[in-house]
Design a protein around this nucleic acid. Structure first.
Lengths: 214, 214
DNA sequence: CAAAAGTTTGACCAAACGGTCAGAAACACG
DNA sequence: CGTGTTTCTGACCGTTTGGTCAAACTTTTG
């Protein structure tokens, strides 16, 4: 790490422009498919000028990923062991879906990186994500053991939440093509569907009969 | 199209080797990230020799995708309008999961292509996938209307099935990292989880109480 | 204002890229 | 065997790639 903190306003403005442009390009083409010329042009800088702020293509990519990892895990961090189990999990699903709506480029950046073997982010997965998942799975397992939710495998539950929600960002073009011409309230429909799916699947039978009688 | 059908045994052997190597490389790096040298080396051929069988990088990629599209849609085609609704959908989920287990490279090839905007496969999506999805959604909607399954949006149901099952191929490295050190029967656990998820979510209440009483 | 610090650029480089080509080697077959 | 066809290769080409550099320009600061 050479730059301890961006000081000048020019540094702040340009590093921000570079990272935003890089997010755009990396998320669309993956690391190897993205070019510095594309990023520089999209950032409105010359290539050498961009490399004045970041030493290499890899450095840009790495910084993007490590910054995003923090934001990306927020919805899971917010899962409250003291809250109502069903509401907590459904809330997590909806927060995650909201992130796909608001930050689709970030979602695709991660997806590209992981599909391609996560060569540049495996450390973050093992050091940051893994313990967090472990912690939250213990909470969910506690809910299972207490009979608050149905007996399911917590890790696979989390995998399913990740996949169903991120799908709306990562596979957006496919979804757009298949939803055409209706399209309409894509994310609202998704929210309704996913809330129904998880609420019905997770609510124990006795409680469901009381709460959800149709 | 220049070659009407691969005739000689050498042609058959080499085109197969090329396509297999290309699948490996494209699925790991995406179209732009893959190089002809990598593919040629992996296929055990020289680059000019490879280009004797395929005119260009794009031609290899296109042929891979169009061949795979057929296989890829088989599980959905098999959804039988005359079968038991819940069993048909659960069966579809499990067939799709099985494809993630058996053909992870193919899954990643599609995922790479679609995340990056599906520039080379959008026609197939619109011409082949879209009508098939439309047809099967009508079937599912019929089951909904008949009260055979719970009231959900069929398209979003299909999206969720695609995402949850393909996730095990596309995000394999992440799943491996998070499941460590246990790992165990990854796909079996996934099958149990997904079957439970969809069976519980889709079964109407009355029927569920009769069938699944715990 | 003037020096120091920070910023920007065009020209350039070696390596890697997708692709071509003439001709050599291997093969099929009467 | 010989001859026509298929298969293969090394050398090569123009372009793009990530990255460098000295020098010029701009901004900050004493």
């Amino acid at each position: 790490m050479k730059k301890l903190r961006p000081k000048t306003r020019i540094q702040r403005k340009n590093t921000a422009a570079i990272l935003d442009a890089a997010l755009e390009v990396f998320s669309q083409h993956g690391f190897r498919g993205a070019t510095l010329d594309q990023i520089a042009k999209s950032a409105g800088l010359s290539k050498p000028n961009m490399l004045y702020y970041f030493a290499s293509k890899e450095e840009i990519h790495t910084q993007l990923l490590s910054e995003l990892m923090v934001v990306w895990l927020d919805p899971l961090r917010a899962l409250d062991p003291l809250g109502d189990p069903i509401e907590e999990i459904v809330g997590y699903v909806l927060r995650k879906l909201e992130m796909s709506r608001e930050l689709p480029r970030e979602s695709r950046l991660f997806a590209n990186e992981i599909i391609q073997g996560a060569p540049r982010i495996m450390n973050n997965i093992k050091n940051d994500l893994h313990p967090l998942v472990e912690e939250k799975c213990n909470i969910i397992q506690g809910w299972v053991d207490a009979g608050k939710i149905v007996n399911i495998n917590p890790k696979h539950l989390i995998f399913s939440i990740w996949s169903t929600t991120q799908h709306y960002a990562d596979f957006d073009v496919q979804i757009q093509a298949l939803l055409a011409p209706e399209q309409g309230e894509k994310f609202n429909d998704a929210a309704v569907f996913l809330e129904t799916l998880y609420r019905r699947a997770l609510t124990p039978n006795a409680q469901k009969n009381a709460d959800l009688l149709e």
